[in-house]
Amino acid sequence: MVDYIVEYDYDAVHDDELTIRVGEIIRNVKKLQEEGWLEGELNGRRGMFPDNFVKEIKR
């Protein structure tokens, strides 16, 4: 799994989504079957977030 950095703020709409803020690092990200969404861990919580608000961290 890979990590992503947040490029744009996003406020969660549903309980299974993450609220993300610019500059945060989302860890252990995986792609979901639902197009346009990823799932990852942030601040001890796992949830979904839109893939166009983040950028993969290349290592």
Rank of each mutant, 00 (worst) to 15 (best):
V2A: 11
D3M: 10
D3K: 07
Y4A: 08
Y4E: 02
Y4K: 04
Y4R: 05
Y4W: 09
Y4F: 11
Y4I: 01
Y4T: 10
I5G: 02
V6H: 01
V6L: 00
V6A: 11
E7Q: 10
Y8R: 15
Y8S: 14
Y8G: 13
Y8E: 13
Y8C: 15
Y8M: 07
Y8V: 10
D9G: 08
D9Q: 12
D9N: 07
D9Y: 01
D9E: 06
Y10N: 03
Y10E: 02
D11V: 13
A12F: 01
A12Y: 00
A12D: 01
A12N: 03
V13C: 12
H14V: 09
H14Y: 07
D15A: 13
D15K: 11
D16Y: 14
D16R: 15
D16A: 12
E17W: 00
E17T: 04
E17I: 03
E17S: 04
E17Q: 15
L18S: 03
L18A: 02
L18R: 04
L18I: 08
T19L: 02
T19E: 01
T19S: 13
T19Y: 01
T19G: 01
I20S: 02
I20A: 04
I20T: 02
R21D: 00
R21W: 04
R21T: 03
V22P: 12
V22I: 07
V22D: 04
G23V: 01
G23D: 01
G23P: 00
G23Q: 03
E24R: 02
I25A: 03
I25P: 01
I26N: 00
I26G: 00
I26Q: 02
N28A: 05
N28V: 00
N28T: 03
N28P: 01
N28F: 04
N28Q: 10
N28Y: 05
N28R: 07
N28K: 07
N28G: 13
V29K: 00
V29D: 01
V29T: 05
V29E: 08
K30C: 10
K30L: 09
K30P: 00
K31S: 10
K31F: 02
K31G: 11
K31P: 15
L32E: 11
Q33A: 12
Q33W: 04
Q33Y: 08
Q33N: 15
Q33S: 14
Q33C: 09
Q33D: 15
E34M: 14
E34T: 13
E34H: 15
E35A: 12
E35D: 13
E35F: 10
G36L: 00
G36S: 06
G36A: 09
W37I: 04
W37G: 02
W37E: 01
L38P: 00
L38D: 02
L38R: 03
L38G: 00
E39N: 05
G40T: 00
E41W: 06
N43S: 08
N43G: 12
N43Y: 12
G44V: 01
G44M: 03
R45I: 09
R45A: 07
R45G: 02
R46N: 04
R46S: 05
R46E: 05
R46Q: 07
M48E: 03
M48I: 15
F49K: 01
P50T: 02
P50K: 09
P50L: 05
P50H: 10
D51V: 12
D51C: 09
D51F: 14
D51N: 15
N52H: 07
N52M: 10
N52E: 07
N52Q: 10
F53S: 14
F53V: 14
V54M: 05
K55N: 07
K55Y: 07
K55Q: 14
E56A: 13
E56S: 07
I57W: 09
I57G: 10
K58G: 13
R59V: 07
R59D: 06
R59W: 10
